[in-house]
Design a protein around this nucleic acid. Structure first.
Length: 476
RNA sequence: CGGGGCGUAGCGCAGUUCGGCCAGCGCGCCUGCUUUGGGAGCAGGAUGUCGGAGGUUCAAAUCCUCUCGCCCCGACCA
């Protein structure tokens, strides 16, 4: 079979598409901009869901579900919100064969319908905080789509919380930002920077938008999660008040925060290589695959028995596959499982059997090693943990090597002329300068650090005084 | 919406310039035998509204008109 993956050096965008398709993460759907998430891709999403859901529960949140369809009038209640989202909304105008009295928006996000309900549920300070998350699909009519990174319909979680004070909502927004950071690093092995968005990049209707940003292998930045301090904007738009202990009606303070199936795209672009997908062990739908190797029927029987025996002693959660197909040779099986990103491959052949051992190969590093059959589960467990650590370490060092601190406009332009990287540079905070930098280099302010070191500097473009560096990159 | 590419078997493509027998090739698929520690070999076999509609013609994958869709790049966005 010919080469199926375009090398990254040749065409990064095509490499990404090749990996996603060949790893069977997703396929193009009949509707433009939509994709089918296939079992291998959905399995990763399920792992992400369960990891995140645990972290949400640990921080006191509960899941609920709100409707897909939102009355048009709800969308219009928050001025910035409707302005930001209207252009990318799909709207249902017919139902039951007749025009609807009021068009129904397919949710691009659920703030409005959720706050219409919070109005009913919140009466007293005793009802706060209200900490709800929902796992859902949303639709945004994007001009240009890319598998996982930007699709018309995507899956996500959206947390929506209500608090008595701004201090509380502010703390919640930062807490969930940290949850995302932790998830990205510990589960996805994807190092991220955390910070605050500029006004130009913030969520329509938010007071402040916080984000995590990760560096992809091509030097572009991926916004991997956002957390918004919504202030009282939605409480005022939907008239959500509570009676304080002092007997005063007060507007509620809000947050919302979300991550989406875009994370799967980020995962691909953080770890995968020219041989296909690489999945960190903690997010792998299947941790290990066992490939039996044999010639004669006797060998086949003995090897398969050993393979299944090994698989049986592994924890069920590993979803170990014994690839006992007679229709493919071992070499074929190796490359297929490599394309699909299974973290650990175990080979068992007659030579291994004779020595009471197996051959173990990590997906991220190619050399074959051997391990005794005795205590194999422990060995695999340790191998998986080492791989998880190494992936994070490797991604971190890649990011460090592609992060620059820049003080001259010439150098700034040079970096973004043909490529991209993380660039820490001074910026005056002036929106017009931000726009001009984007115009001239395609690089944007990805985030403003939360507790950046203060230092005297001059804006990279305007030369105006600046107290902190901000993070620039071209963005996905 | 602008630029580029493309629609022919499950996938990848040739054939279209200059119309002409039964529309081809590779991979995959099915059957059999031999194989099996890095994408197996041989033999046999199945598979097509040539994206769609209309037109020109004795004859259209090929020429004309219209149309639908997809991918990539750019402007907008998680």
């Amino acid at each position: 079979m010919a080469r199926v993956i375009t090398p990254r050096s040749e065409d990064y965008a095509q490499w990404y598409v090749d990996v996603v398709l060949n790893a069977e993460l997703a396929d193009y759907a009949p509707v433009k901009g939509c994709m089918v998430i296939r079992p291998n891709g959905y399995g990763i999403w399920e792992k992400m869901q369960s990891g995140l859901d645990g972290l949400f529960k640990d921080t006191g949140h509960s899941n609920a579900y709100f409707p897909l369809l939102i009355p048009e009038s709800f969308m219009r209640k928050e001025a910035e919100h409707v302005e930001g989202f209207s252009p990318e909304c799909a709207v249902v105008t017919m139902g039951g064969g007749k025009p609807l009295e009021e068009p129904l928006y397919i949710r691009p996000t659920s703030e409005t319908i959720i706050w219409s309900m919070y109005r009913k549920w919140i009466r007293s300070y005793r009802d706060l905080p209200l900490l709800i998350n929902q796992w859902a699909n949303v639709v945004r009519w994007e001009m240009r789509t890319r598998l996982f990174l930007r699709t018309t319909e995507f899956l996500w979680q959206e947390g929506h919380t209500a608090h008595a004070t701004h201090e509380d909502s502010h703390r919640e927004a930062l807490q969930m930002l940290d949850v995302y950071r932790q998830f990205a690093e510990e589960y996805m092995a994807m190092p991220v920077h955390v910070g605050r968005k500029t006004d130009a990049e913030k969520f329509p209707g938010a007071l402040v938008t916080y984000c995590i940003e990760a560096l992809m292998q091509d030097g572009k930045s991926l916004q991997a999660g956002t957390s918004h301090d919504l202030g009282q904007n939605f409480a005022k738009a939907f008239d959500v008040t509570y009676l304080s202990p002092e007997g005063v009606q007060e507007y509620v303070w809000a947050t919302s925060w979300g991550v989406s199936t875009r994370l799967v795209g980020g995962l691909v672009m953080t770890h995968s290589d020219d041989d296909g997908l690489v999945i960190p062990p903690r997010l792998a739908p299947q941790l290990a695959v066992i490939v039996p190797i044999y010639r004669s029927d006797e060998e086949r029987t003995a090897v398969l028995e050993a393979a299944h025996a090994a698989a049986r002693q592994f924890p069920k959660a590993w979803r170990t596959v014994v690839d006992d197909r007679d229709t493919a040779k071992p070499g074929r099986k190796f490359t297929e499982w490599e394309l699909r990103g299974v973290p650990i491959r175990i080979e068992i052949g007659p030579r291994d059997l004779a020595q009471g051992q197996v051959t173990v190969v990590r997906r991220d590093t190619k050399p074959k090693t051997t391990a005794p059959m005795e205590g194999l589960a422990d060995h695999i467990q340790q191998t998986a943990e080492a791989m998880q650590r190494d992936l994070l370490e490797r991604a971190r060092s890649f990011r460090d090597q592609n992060t620059h601190s820049v003080d001259s406009w010439e150098e700034f332009e040079e970096i973004f002329r043909d490529g991209s990287a993380f660039v820490w540079a001074h910026w005056s905070g002036d929106p017009e300068v931000e726009a001009e930098i984007k115009e001239r280099t395609k690089a944007t302010v990805r985030l403003i650090p939360l507790d950046g070191d203060e230092e005297d500097g001059r804006c990279i473009l305007s030369g105006k005084p600046s107290r902190t560096r901000v993070l620039f990159a071209k963005a996905y």
